[in-house]
Design a protein around this nucleic acid. Structure first.
Lengths: 134, 134
DNA sequence: GTGATTGCAAATTTTTTGCAAGATA
DNA sequence: TATCTTGCAAAAAATTTGCAATCAC
């Protein structure tokens, strides 16, 4: 758990027990919404309320410890993996799954690098494979 | 407006004035959330309530007249263009913009076609360029 | 000690639901 | 006419906010 404490500290946030627990939960869950984190932690850390979870997740995003994910339902999802990767998005269950394919990312970035997209300042490319768990 | 009426009818839904107005609003807006449709129509069609808008948008998605879009805030967005295309997503304003690039789509589909993704049944590929309006 | 953070409660925003009245095919 | 659809109101779901008490550095 030392690593988490350091990670949070390095980001400029105070390493409170709540933040450490939330980050650890995100590591276990990978991709999660606020209520999934509550559920994951309410046995271990029952004092943690949904409001705090939202505040902590938001501050983690601001500091780059998490990234937001894109969904088609009305919920916000967060991803503990901040490196460049592809997602599989199950529209039935609204779940996200990592799909590591550096070659595809390289392919797309190479293609886009050669293009000039007028009016846009592209900061990242998000590729989601939409479908269902087979 | 004849075309819209036909389109709705062909999908198996009754072509009510409300549905025609909502579809027309979506055509003007391109990508929109329910409240954007309300705002677009509340001068022309003030009796339309948000509940009806949600019901209509949802039934349009079921019938394939609209597709859902992916966002990182807590709102549902809809897209009137159901053909395969790429999006630019502005994370500041949560707005979507079409970016037509058939070559990139072909490139990605070709690459994925050659891959076997175990455990997934991929129905579509969603590519979003994340960034800000320049 | 001091400023940042948490927890609580309440408010806001977004989406869904139940049902009676009305409209479409 | 029979069924589908709308509009209203209320409920549910998801997120945000204000503030006093508490904690990390």
């Amino acid at each position: 758990m030392l690593k988490i404490k350091e990670k949070i500290h390095e980001s400029g946030l105070k390493a409170t027990p709540q933040r450490i627990a939330i980050y650890a939960a995100m590591q276990r869950l990978g991709h999660a919404s606020a209520d999934m984190v509550v559920e994951e932690l309410n046995n271990v850390f029952p004092s943690l309320t949904i409001a705090t979870i939202y505040n902590v997740l938001e501050s983690f995003v601001e500091k780059g410890l998490l990234v937001r994910r894109y969904s088609s339902n009305n919920k916000m999802y967060f991803d503990v993996n901040t490196y460049d990767h592809i997602h599989f998005y199950d529209v039935e269950s609204n779940t996200h799954r990592d799909y590591s394919d550096p070659e595809l990312i390289r392919l797309v970035n190479e293609y886009l690098g050669s293009k000039d997209i007028p009016g846009f300042k592209v900061s990242s490319v998000d590729i989601q494979l939409i479908g269902q768990m087979a």
